[in-house]
């Protein structure tokens, strides 16, 4: 079976290797460049001056702030290219998953291969397993590649939680890729035709991703609330910790929202604080150290769904003749 799977999918494997090499050819030079700029600008000292406390310490200089701004400004465009990698799992689902069973049925070759000496379950295990392993390697390599690449930006305060950065770094790509592949395989066993299976991947994968990223992910854990009375100086959260700020609001003492997406300060000389006495500047955020916890939840979610889809595919396979 291993020989057959390799023979059938070697072209795809070659494409994957070529794709990863192209990615490496982009991220390794830019990543190294980013690192040398990081050192040249003296950012290590700046970053260590930020410390790891909840707030940016008073010792943090304006000069450092300016340097960090210019560093981020210089590499933002380069880093934004990583957005393209969001589509990689989708491609795996469409071009590896969907045809896996559907093309065999379309060409009738399932009747050839299932009447040799191996059961269709063995066939399915070998095909799903090896193509799955290949996809996994692609996902792990680019996920951790992107994590390595982005590390200098993350250290100076570009949070890993940012949408489009969370989605292409760490282990999350593994979840998306496994899900897309399983979705393609399952759609192929249900529709038994390549084109409808590909369309199904497209139509299901994108909404699921958008809904999970937009609605579920912010609720994986209860955010931490920071509340500072408006008549006190509003400290900045330490960007080096990579906190994910979800919302800000000015709230009255009894918890009512006075202003959304805003913070305010009152002149300490003004009587009654301009009518805002007792109000609080509130910030809801997910602490940066929850990153891997969030990645784990999201990946696990997709892996569980993928397992269910594979189970559906194995069931469906039994009915194909």
């Amino acid at each position: 079976m291993i020989w057959l799977v390799w023979r059938q999918h070697r072209k795809q494997a070659l494409f994957a290797v070529a794709g990863l090499l192209a990615l490496a050819a982009y991220i390794i030079p830019t990543g190294l460049g980013m690192r040398s700029t990081y050192t040249d600008l003296g950012l290590p000292a700046c970053v260590s001056s930020m410390g790891d406390g909840q707030f940016i310490p008073s010792s943090f200089t304006n000069a450092c702030n300016e340097t960090i701004r210019s560093f981020i400004g210089r590499y933002t465009a380069v880093a934004n290219v990583s957005v393209l990698l969001i589509f990689l799992p989708l491609l795996v689902g469409i071009f590896w998953g969907a045809p896996l069973v559907a093309r065999e049925v379309e060409h009738g070759t399932h009747r050839l291969v299932w009447t040799q000496g191996v059961s269709r379950r063995q066939w399915a295990m070998a095909k799903f397993g090896l193509v799955g392993a290949g996809s996994l390697i692609v996902a792990v390599v680019y996920g951790f590649g992107v994590s390595w690449w982005m590390a200098p930006l993350n250290r100076v305060g570009v949070t890993r939680f940012e949408t489009f950065k969370f989605d292409v770094g760490g282990i999350a790509p593994v979840g998306y890729t496994v899900f897309a592949l399983a979705l393609g395989i399952a759609a192929g066993t249900i529709f038994r035709k390549v084109m409808p299976a590909m369309a199904a991947v497209l139509v299901v994968f994108i909404p699921v991703r958008v809904l999970v990223a937009g609605l579920a992910r912010p609720r994986f854990a209860t955010p931490v609330e920071l509340a500072i009375p408006v008549d006190q100086p509003n400290p900045n959260l330490n960007a080096a910790r990579g906190d994910w700020i979800q919302s800000m609001a000015v709230k009255s003492a009894d918890g009512q929202t006075l202003m959304d997406n805003a913070s305010t300060a009152c002149n300490p000389d003004a009587a009654d604080c301009g009518g805002m006495s007792g109000a609080l500047n509130t910030t809801l955020y997910q602490p940066g150290d929850r990153f891997w916890w969030f990645q784990g939840i999201e990946t696990g979610l997709y892996v569980v769904v993928a397992a269910a889809l594979i189970w559906i595919a194995l069931r469906g396979l039994r009915r194909i003749a």
Binding site: M1, R7, T109, T115, Q116, G117
Partner: peptide
């Protein structure tokens, strides 16, 4: 399965395989 030989309708084969590769495939699967 080892006792059965089957030639399905339209004699399906992996069209991008060579005849020699199909024979190899048979050896690997049987």
């Amino acid at each position: 399965l080892p006792d059965l030989g089957f030639v399905a309708q339209d004699t399906p084969l992996y069209r991008d395989f060579t005849a020699a590769e199909l024979v190899t495939m048979g050896g690997k699967l049987n």
